[in-house]
Design a protein around this nucleic acid. Structure first.
Lengths: 195, 195
DNA sequence: AACGTCACGATACACTCGTATCGCAAAGAG
DNA sequence: CTCTTTGCGATACGAGTGTATCGTGACGTT
């Protein structure tokens, strides 16, 4: 066997470059040559690891999902209790707008294809549903008043976090403002909401 | 004077075609030839009305803004009182996800450039701020409890409506579900919220 | 040491892109 | 009718695209 290379690592590295371009120019702006230049490698190498452009896009979409998931999970390292976990989760989503705009923008780019492409759509819905379930569970576990409808509240909180992330992304709100808005809503549910 | 043509109307017609392509393929997927084909005209005609591609994109962005504004205003025709106007406004935003996905998707496409391009960014922020002010005013006018912070509540409601619109767009929620979630939040503010 | 396999670069080709530049037809002005 | 302006189609050209196909090293096996 000849030269040994970590196939998966190389693919991930190239997919990362693809996501950066995707955030800048949109989905259609991602080109083989562009990714090669962004990653500082030859055009042939990209072609070697992703036979066709479609492969690159698929891999990028899946990497995006993992990246966002990782970003959110990283924010939960030192969470204490379900209420705190809930708040940190939502804050992590909001902070995508300022800390990882690349992921958020790439997500928006893929959203367009999700409307047409069933595969990407399923990827999107699966991710969204998972987060929704998780948030609903956290709401149910941390609510003081047992009368709250966890599912509906989770929809409110998730949609709110997403909307705030977009607001932060374009600079309509600062992170501090967005955090305050989020805490305002959390307090209304009878949940602790940071300082 | 030779043949008389409604310049503005032609430009709007072509910009409409551009928005459709934008929703399908993203910003970078909008091409002169593509717009020509979508509109059923020659490539030269598009070039005649928009000297360069950048002109086309600018015109499309402005048309997008007017279209969304028109869509929302159309929903307020038979609004009765500030509370009803508030609800209809928010619902109109949510319904962009199901009734005018083209506008919503095109908006997401332009969002990417808003992060880099100061002009588009300003267009975006100006539109968002205007809606925010309007919603804040409606909240203040229709709130039973004078203690509510209209600005913060407006941020919550606007971000919520945007997030719900995205959810509806990808099919995570139905319009009925999204409406219920929105009404749930409105009721919590002590506002009437439809049936 | 010879070999086969794989990573990777270089090149070729058909295609689409944006833009510039023609040319013709139509229609009001004289 | 003629002239001039404008709407619009057709074409040309360079740059950039995705993909196919080479070539050339580097390595593990035998």
């Amino acid at each position: 066997m000849p030269k040994q290379v970590d196939h998966a690592a190389r693919r991930a590295e190239l997919a990362h470059a693809a996501l950066r371009l995707c955030a800048r120019d949109g989905l259609a702006g991602v080109s083989i040559g562009g990714v090669a230049q962004e990653a500082g490698v030859s055009k042939g190498l990209v072609q070697h690891y992703f036979g066709a452009r479609a492969d690159l896009m698929r891999a990028s979409a899946q990497l995006l999902r993992r990246e966002i998931e990782g970003h959110v999970r990283a924010a939960l390292r030192e969470a204490a209790g379900p209420a705190d976990t809930l708040r940190r989760t939502l804050l992590a989503v909001v902070e995508l707008g300022s800390r990882a705009p690349v992921l958020l923008l790439a997500g928006h780019a893929f959203l367009a294809t999700a409307v047409t492409d069933p595969d990407v759509r399923e990827l999107y819905r699966a991710g969204g549903d998972a987060v929704h379930r998780e948030i609903a569970a956290l709401v149910a576990a941390s609510a003081a008043d047992p009368g709250v409808e966890a599912g509906a509240e989770a929809h409110v909180l998730l949609a709110l976090a997403r909307g705030l992330a977009d607001g932060v992304l374009v600079g309509e709100l600062g992170i501090a403002e967005a955090t305050a808005v989020l805490d305002h809503q959390l307090r209304r549910l009878g949940l602790p909401a940071g300082s």
